[in-house]
Amino acid sequence: MTARPAANARLLLHIDWTACDGRGLCTEILPELLGRDEWGYPIAPGHGSDVPVPDRLAPAAEEAVALCPRLALSLRRRD
């Protein structure tokens, strides 16, 4: 897991914590970006609800968004 995923990333992976149930699919698809905390919820060290996505991981991030069983993920362009 990289300590600081791309500071200049153009995409943000937003986690809706009210929807997230820590099913773990996103952490399998994006192991470089997301780990799991001790209760199984996704965690990106140094980031909270908006995780910068390096360009090379954008397709995987899109897949994670599409496969999240709780629809808890969304991708946004960074302002």
Binding site: W17, T18, G40
Partner: peptide, 9 residues
């Protein structure tokens, strides 16, 4: 009671 890290942490 909505967000896992808060509910548990």
């Amino acid at each position: 009671g909505q967000c896992g890290p808060c509910v548990n942490g």
